[in-house]
Simulated assay, not measured.
Amino acid sequence: MNAFSKGDFFLYFKNSLFVSVTATLLTVLINTMAGYALSKFIFKGRDIIFYTMIATLMIPLQVIMVPIFLLLKNLGMLNSLWGIIIPPAATPTGIFLARQYILTIPNSLIEAARIDGGGEFFIFHSIILPLATPIIGTITIFSFMWRWNDFLWPFIVISTPKLMTVQLALANFVGQYQINWASLLAMTIISMIPMIIVFLLFQKYFVKGLTAGGVKF
């Protein structure tokens, strides 16, 4: 408990938990919706959009960091937790995995639902999401761990100490002349607990979700 009392660590823990959970929910929703659209809808330019999105994986974060920072500044989202959450909500890797998995869902199920009068949101909610739980679990693990461990983007966006995440707090806890190793190691171990819990909850979907992404398209 002494570790939590050091520099409002419990507050930083709550900030990280809010950012990671909210961002993961947004990422799962956006990625599965995009994967559904790119796998089951036929429209002009679909493949171009998909391959362009995959090509963005080769662009380093440092290249787009300044434009995103200026955009957040114009939107008034700097120095807020939402400024950490929203910009990376849609990830090319997550969309790719979702698209590849949803391709394995038979089109006959979707067509039958459409014939029965089901709308696209009903199909997505009642058919796609339940059948795509393996890939949703995989994306959840990736997204949560990435957001929880992220240091660079929160470091750029956040300037108020009360809004710091766990990773920023751990970095700031390291003093220039001395380090309280006992408290630092205790806080580091405590910060690992949410990741372990998330992985244990979704690990049964992990391998199945990844292997399903290898289907040809």
Rank of each mutant, 00 (worst) to 15 (best):
T104I: 02
L131H: 15
I179L: 09
T32I: 02
L185A: 12
G137T: 14
T211C: 00
I85K: 07
A23R: 12
P194G: 09
R114P: 00
I85R: 07
L26F: 14
T140L: 03
L163I: 03
I197M: 14
I179W: 02
P194A: 10
M1A: 08
N15W: 02
G117I: 01
L201Y: 02
V66F: 14
P130A: 12
I102F: 00
F96D: 05
K216E: 14
P87S: 11
L201G: 00
I196A: 12
L131F: 13
P87M: 11
T24Q: 05
V157P: 12
Q203W: 00
V198A: 04
G175Q: 07
A182R: 13
S191N: 11
L78F: 13
F173G: 10
S80T: 15
I102D: 01
P87N: 10
L185C: 05
G119V: 03
T32H: 00
F142I: 11
T133L: 15
V63D: 12
P161W: 02
P106Q: 05
T93H: 01
L17R: 08
P130Y: 14
I84A: 06
A98M: 11
T24A: 04
T27M: 13
V19W: 00
I49P: 03
M195Y: 06
T211K: 00
A3F: 11
G35D: 06
A186W: 11
M58F: 15
E120Y: 11
G119K: 06
M195G: 15
D150W: 02
V21H: 05
